[in-house]
Design a protein around this nucleic acid. Structure first.
Length: 652
DNA sequence: AGCACGCCGACT
DNA sequence: GTCGGCGTGCTC
């Protein structure tokens, strides 16, 4: 009988009280297939009810006093939960006061039986693992980055701005070539690389760049952008080492890579790396844990340094690496004109755009999609509101009548509630309106719009005005001949802790799309933030930003956790967290919707483990203790305690 | 979550 | 005497 007779099973359930290993007896009939890592179905609390789970380990005996139930069924032909992925999920969940099985849901894609059967046929058990393949092209002499990766360092990489043209003719950001080359060097040592990028457009660039230096069959995508079967197949390829360069979105950091040599994140400041699903672990944090557990190298590559990575640099936890060839975009800081109606684009920028648009594509970055998302009284400037419901008015197209954003009522015959003025002015100009304006000003030049809803990945080298909302800028063949960063002032107005950090990232990423020597105009923004971009001192800027947050005890200078529940339920968990003493403080509670209240717990990093453990214990207690009926209401709603660590929205 | 167990009020 | 109400507690 191979292995032991007891299987320790992690149950697939979000309930905190079930987030532990349960022992089951392995019946003789399943002994061969009940291997460590297999997915199983097991009875949970008396017959009939079956839960999904994974065998985490096999043992000869159990510590459990009662009688063990038997595993009902083994549902996979191959072990899908690698031991190191389990260790990662456990640790990452503990750090966030969450369930390991919630993390495993990101790590293990849903099963496709046909894909699995086909895969097993091609990879019979016991077969030799695939030999380390050679790189397509010699990856070239190792540079500073490759040497640091070979030393298994943790690296904050200042990416080289600009674009590169690949052998197949495609244009990608230079960052993609840098990371692809690093992966090729890791591959040449017979090791695996995992690269996580924010979105599918970045993924396309990276995949293109990789194909120049790595055999195609070694590149494996693990993102959700493909069919479920293809995704599952890619996942299986990771498990047995067929995959050597694994690329994907934020979940790729959980891919079951064998012989992991490098884990890399491109542009870690992008909010898409923040996992919305519970327990909401940021891919950067998961990557850090994985680095620690695996001993692989870790690279955070970006143009704009995030405050989180800068904190790690400050601690000496990450080493800074700069490109051997130093380059920076030519950023010009333009004052916006004084007349807000006509001088949205100041004359210097206007001239630059006009001249450049004769030679090739020009990028104009704007804050918003659509036409005019907000209107104001032309006389007194107060926001225009709907006479019927008081909602804000918008204009959806050049000829469209103003309508209410809330109720859709057409606001014919507008009359200002403040001053009785009857004329409207656009205050929030979107990409469509900008396109219209510029189309008139540059007759005969093609105008292309790329926004969040319909983002373009690439535009050609032909003259064109490319109007893109921030974050949706296409890559231009050969690079943009000029880049105009409009609406900066408006972007900075947003009320959030990370606005300026986000703005610097949006601007830097757009500026990095310019051709070498092409001008980048930052319009209407002055002060330190403009200087930081113009001098491309983005790490120093992050350091200053971090220092300001340290002063205020804001993240990432400290860790934060939001705790949400009905007021009375909140009391004891908060008291217990407060009792942890020094280095932990609690803000609030403040009422949020639905009769719930929320506190923000702030803690020094050294206390985070204790806080997470305390909050986790509270979650279990609240979930299992007797549910008290709500006073006056017969409704029996289970009391809940929601805990979220490192919530990006904790400080607005 | 779900479901069994258990300890008090009206039924054949 | 028991049937079943829902409050309580556990899940290998």
């Amino acid at each position: 009988m191979p292995g032991g007779r007891v299987a320790r099973v992690a149950i697939d359930s979000p309930l905190p009280q079930l987030d532990q290993l349960f022992d089951y007896a392995v019946p003789d009939a399943l002994a061969e297939r009940a291997v460590r890592g297999a997915a199983v179905r097991v009875p949970l609390r008396s017959g009939g009810r079956l839960a999904r789970g994974w065998i985490v380990e096999l043992a000869d005996e159990s510590d459990f006093d009662g009688r063990l139930s038997e595993i009902d069924e083994v549902t996979t032909l191959v072990p899908v939960l690698a031991p190191e992925v389990w260790a990662l999920a456990r640790r990452v969940a503990d750090r966030a006061a969450g369930s390991a099985s919630d993390v495993l849901r990101l790590a293990i894609p849903s099963r496709y039986v046909r894909a699995e059967k086909a895969w097993v046929k091609e990879h019979p058990p016991g077969a030799e693992p695939p030999a380390a393949p050679a790189a397509t092209d010699a990856p070239g002499e190792p540079d500073a980055l490759d040497r640091a990766v070979a030393e298994r360092a943790r690296i904050a990489l200042q990416a080289l701005p600009g674009v590169a043209t690949l052998s197949a003719g495609a244009t990608v950001g230079r960052w993609a070539v840098t990371l692809a080359t690093a992966a090729a060097h890791v591959l040449a040592r017979g090791e695996t690389t995992v690269v996580a990028v924010p979105d599918h457009r970045d993924l396309a660039q990276l995949e293109h760049a990789l194909r120049d230096v790595v055999p195609e069959e070694r590149i494996t995508r693990v993102d959700a952008g493909q069919t479920g079967a293809a995704r599952y197949r890619g996942f299986l390829d990771c498990l047995d080492g067929t995959a050597r360069v694994i690329i994907g979105n934020r979940s790729a950091v959980y891919a079951p890579a064998t012989r992991l040599g490098l884990i890399a994140l491109w542009d870690d400041g992008d909010p898409l790396f923040a996992e919305p699903l519970s327990p909401g672990v940021h891919a950067r944090d998961a990557a850090l844990v994985r680095q620690e557990q695996s001993g692989a190298a870790l690279v955070f590559a970006a143009h704009a340094r995030s405050t989180e990575v800068q904190r790690l640099v400050g601690l000496g936890w990450c080493r800074q690496v700069e490109p051997e060839r130093l380059a920076r975009p030519h950023v010009v800081v333009d004052e916006a004109g004084s007349d807000p109606g006509t001088a949205r684009i100041p004359s210097a920028a206007w001239r630059a755009a006009r001249d450049a648009s004769r030679a090739g594509p020009v990028l104009l970055q704007v804050a918003r999609p659509g036409y005019a998302a907000a209107l104001a009284c032309a006389r007194c400037g107060s926001p225009a509101t709907c006479a019927a419901c008081g909602g804000g008015l918008e204009q959806r197209g050049p000829r469209a009548a103003p309508t209410c954003r809330v109720c859709g009522t057409h606001a014919n015959g507008f009359r200002c509630a403040e001053c009785e003025g009857d004329r409207l002015r656009m205050v929030s100009i979107g990409s469509e309106r900008t396109a219209e304006e510029l189309g008139r000003a540059f007759p005969g030049t093609r105008v292309i719009v790329s926004d969040g809803e319909r983002p373009l990945t690439e535009v050609g080298p032909e003259p064109a005005l490319v109007i893109a909302t921030r974050g949706a800028e296409p890559v231009a063949a050969g690079g943009y001949r000029a880049v105009l960063l409009l609406d900066g002032e408006r972007m900075l107005l947003r009320e959030a802790l990370r606005v300026s950090e986000d703005c610097v990232r949006w601007w830097a990423d757009a500026a990095a799309l310019a051709a070498d020597d092409a001008p980048v105009h930052l319009v209407g923004v002055r002060g330190r933030i403009a200087t930081a971009l113009a001098t491309w001192q983005l790490a120093r800027w992050a350091e200053e930003e971090l220092a300001a947050r340290r002063e205020l005890r804001f993240p990432p200078a400290v860790r934060v956790a939001t705790v949400t529940a009905r007021g009375p339920v909140l009391e004891r968990p908060v008291a217990e967290v407060r009792a942890l003493g020094e280095g932990v403080d609690v803000l609030g509670p403040v009422p949020v919707d639905d009769g719930l209240e929320r506190v923000v717990v702030r803690m020094d990093y050294g206390r985070a483990q204790a806080v997470a453990a305390s909050l986790r214990a509270s979650m279990i207690r609240v979930a299992t203790e007797r549910r008290r009926p709500v006073q006056g209401q017969p409704v029996r709603r289970p009391p809940t305690l929601r805990v979220r660590f490192d919530d990006q929205e904790a400080f607005g």
